[in-house]
Every structure is written in structure tokens, then in C-alpha cells.
Write a protein that binds this DNA or RNA. Structure first.
Lengths: 258, 258
DNA sequence: TCCTGAACCAATTTGCAAGTGGTTCAGTGA
DNA sequence: TCACTGAACCACTTGCAAATTGGTTCAGGA
């Protein structure tokens, strides 16, 4: 009679031993299990059998393992990525645009309310230079400076820190080609005009108009990004982008259909 | 004839040499200056005189130095504090509330649009527990969990990361007393009711209602915080202002000008 | 067929050394 | 007396190699 269960004798034996061990360590503060090699020797089985048992326990959520770190009792810690690299990796460009659509209109509104005259002067100068720059890199730089100056003018250091965080992710090299394509052509002129409108509203202290103008601008940017992403290049630029579906899934539970 | 200027001959000589050096390196891409010991030997003066000259240049903003790194030409890079400690230090509680007022209504709206059934179940359970908890710590925990669950349900990992960042700053111990006072008394019951409204709107997929309810809630929280902050406690909670006069003299003799 | 032992790969942590600015101190010379 | 020098030490940063650990593959045995 064939055994459909892949876990066999040694693994089952190890499972029992390990469960008992976990029950013991649960009461203690000990969270770390011995290395696999040591543990296998202690129990008296091979490492492969031990690993099969550990896989079961990990699937049950009673332990978690990480290469180079070790095996630990309990559920895997929540690891909300706080460093930019990881955030960049697992953040979809559209997610970034959604965040910008929430943050930057608010920044524009606050800037209209609280910008100093110096801020407004700087914004006006930036608007001129943005329009006059010809190459893509120049546009990119002026555009970035413009948005950041608005964020500074909003006068909230925490919001500014958030803006910088989002901006750094946005400038990740992964999406550079994407952005260049999204801002090429006649869109650029519309962007310049939209920038003018935002700055004019800020200069005239019209908070609501500034917020609205910024939202309109970002929605067009988002639309351009969307269009570029859905029409793949002749040469593939990256596997990560086309691979991901529309929205990013923080967990696997998130809705699939229905 | 006495020289009132503390910087004397060698330092001034070094200043001239260094300014010339800076003018040269300005054209090049070189940003890093040789180590102080090397530079001092090159110029032919002692390290102390060199450091005095470097202090002048640093004050002028032409160079910047950092222990363990080196001395560099140009202005110090924009160290936007990305770590939480520094952000916490220089962020005012009202700034945090302003940010929450921008972020969390958006999160509630997105949650109403994208929450899974599992999310909604969790929210409903949390609402019950929040109401039933009696002590201040318990309320704090459930409240925090509730807001974070909404942030998770919004389904945008970047927004979630931002929420966590703000939340960690908010939970800084500096404001713990403040928050306890702000949520004491009859306000707590209003908060519970407001939470119910937010969750109900999310459960019924009414995005606009969820956003509005969350904003209303946070505006009340903000108002409570404001009220608490403007009515100082009988016992001072900040030890920083009344600084101990005795201890601090480890470095220099402080001039006690009588 | 399953397990073992061994070997190798990859990620992480740790320890150490070198290099740097920051500081103090005794000595030197005008 | 004053400013400077040289030396020594401290504190911070970086880079690298070794050790540790989980992840994987493979030949061999019961």
C-alpha cells in the first residue's frame, strides 16, 4: 500500500519530538531553536527528515525560519518594510501614484495657505525653468524640484518627510524608462500648463483651487502611466512590472474576483 | 599689540591656502578633501591650526565634515531625517494630527472600496472590543489596532507603510501623557461611537461616508489634543526646560559671567 | 522508496582592522 | 602669556573576511 503522505516515519517521529519541545519552550522566553544540524543530531535523525518536520511546523505557524538567521518559535514578526529598498521592490508604480494623489493635493492646499513670499518666488522661477528645459533629464529635475518646493511650502515637516519618502521610491531606477515614456510628447506641454495653474493658485492663496489643480495634474500623470504600462514595449524592459496585476497585494487574501 | 581675533597667523595662512584649493577643486568633480593629518602636512602647519581654518570654511558653508567619513567640498547634503528618532524629536504633535487628517480619511475611503470580507469581520470584532475595554492602556491598544486594520484594508502597501511611520511617531513616549489626558472622560464614548460609524460605512461600502466619518473623528481628536495642550498641567511634564545647572560641564568650562 | 551524510550555495551576523574627524594634553617657541 | 605643535586617545564609519545558518543538491545505503 503506497503512502500518499510525503512525511514518513522519521519525519513523524521528529514531529512529535519537536511539538513537545515547542510546548516546553513556549513557557520559557526562549524563542530560538538550535541550528538544524545540531537539532537533527540531538533528536537522532537526519537533517532532511528534520527539515520536513520543520516545514510542517512552519506551515502551521508555530515556528518561522530565515536563511542565515535561524529557526524561531512563534509567528513570523510583522516585518513592515521600513527601509526604502524593500519598499521600492514591493511597491507597484500605480500604488505610488495613488499615494501621490492623496498627499500632493493636500500639500498644494497647505502651501496655498501657508507659503511664504519667498516660497512663492521660488515657485514662479521654477515654473519658468521647467517650461524652458528641453531634454528629458532636465524636465525630470525641474519637475522634481517644483513638486518638492510645494511640499516644503506646506510647512509640515512630517508631511515633507513622507513626500521625500514617496519621492525616493518614485525615482527608483526601475521605473525610469516608464516615466520617460509617460512624459514624452505633447503631454509635457499639458504638464507645464498644469504646473502653472497650481502655482498660480498657490500664489493667489486659493487653497481649494490649488488642491484641485494638483489633483487634476496627478490624475493626468496617472493616466499617462497607466497607458504606458498597458502598451508593452517592443523590447521587454523588466519582468517585474508586467508581471504584477493592477493593484499590489499586501496579503494574498486580497480579493481575487467576486 | 594684542590680537582680539582668536584665529592667528597659521590659521589665516591655512585659510588662504584652503580657499585656493577649494577654488581649484570646485571645477573638478572632486568632492573629498584629504584627511586632516595629510592636509596639515601638505600645507605645512599643525592639525590644530588647520582645523581652525576648516571650522571657518564649514561655517561659511563651503565644506562640511563628518566624523569617520571625511571632509567634503560643497554644502552638507540634505539630511532629511529618515529615521524615526530624529523625526520624532522635531515633529510637533499637532503636525502629526494634521498628517493623520490627510492620510486616514483617504485610508478609510479606500478601505470602503477595497476591504475584503475578512477585513470587515475583523473591524467589527475590534469595534466590540474597543467599547468593552475599561482601562486606558486597553483602549489605547484597541484603538491603535482598529486604525491599523483600516489602513491594512485599504490595500496599498505604501500607504500602509506611511501610516505605520506616522503611527510610530505618534506613539512616541513624549506624548503619552498628552494622549491619555486627551482621551479621558466622556470623549472616549464619543470616540467609540465615531469608530462605529466609520466601520459601518466601510462595511456598507460607502466610501464617501467612511472618509467623512474618519475626518470627523480625527478632527475631534485634534480638538481634544489642542485643548489639553493649551491648559498646562499643575506639575510640569517637560524636564528639558528646567535644565539641571550642575551636571553639564563635562566638555568646556562654561563661562559663568557672574 | 525513503533516509542519511556530505557537500555546496546563499543570506545574515559578527568581529576586526583601518581610516577619519573630535578632543585633550604636555611641550615648544616667540 | 599666548598660539602653535605633536602625540595620544576617543568616537564614528566603512569595508572585509570569517563564522553561522537555512536552502539545496547529490551519491549511497537500508
Amino acid at each position: 500500500m503506497s503512502n500518499p503522505n510525503p512525511s514518513a516515519d522519521s519525519s513523524n517521529f521528529a514531529l512529535g519530538r519537536l511539538r513537545a519541545l515547542l510546548d516546553d519552550t513556549a513557557s520559557d522566553g526562549e524563542q530560538r531553536l538550535p541550528p538544524e544540524r545540531v537539532l537533527a543530531a540531538q533528536i537522532g535523525i537526519g537533517r532532511r527528515a528534520l527539515r520536513r518536520a520543520l516545514e510542517v511546523l512552519e506551515a502551521e505557524g508555530r515556528i518561522w525560519r530565515h536563511q542565515g538567521k535561524g529557526t524561531f518559535v512563534g509567528s513570523r514578526p510583522d516585518h513592515t518594510p521600513t527601509n526604502l529598498e524593500e519598499l521600492s521592490k514591493r511597491t507597484h508604480p500605480l500604488e505610488v501614484m495613488d499615494v501621490r494623489l492623496e498627499i500632493e493635493p493636500a500639500l498644494a492646499r497647505l502651501a496655498a495657505m501657508r507659503a511664504t513670499n519667498g516660497d512663492i518666488e521660488r515657485l514662479l522661477r521654477l515654473a519658468e525653468k521647467t517650461a524652458s528645459s528641453s531634454d528629458a533629464d532636465g524636465r525630470e529635475l525641474w519637475d522634481s524640484a517644483l513638486h518638492r518646493t510645494i511640499a516644503e511650502a506646506a510647512g509640515n515637516s512630517l508631511l515633507l518627510a513622507i513626500f521625500d519618502m514617496v519621492d525616493r521610491i518614485r525615482q527608483d531606477t526601475t521605473w525610469r524608462l516608464l516615466r520617460e515614456r509617460a512624459r514624452s510628447g505633447e503631454r509635457q506641454q499639458i504638464y507645464v500648463e498644469q504646473h502653472r495653474r497650481v502655482i498660480a493658485a498657490i500664489a493667489q492663496r486659493e487653497a481649494h483651487a490649488a488642491e484641485h489643480a494638483m489633483r487634476e495634474h496627478l490624475e493626468l500623470v496617472r493616466e499617462g502611466l497607466l497607458k504606458v504600462m498597458t502598451t508593452p514595449l517592443p523590447d521587454r524592459m523588466d519582468g517585474q512590472i508586467s508581471e504584477a496585476p493592477v493593484t499590489a497585494n499586501t496579503k494574498k487574501e486580497r480579493r481575487h474576483g467576486t
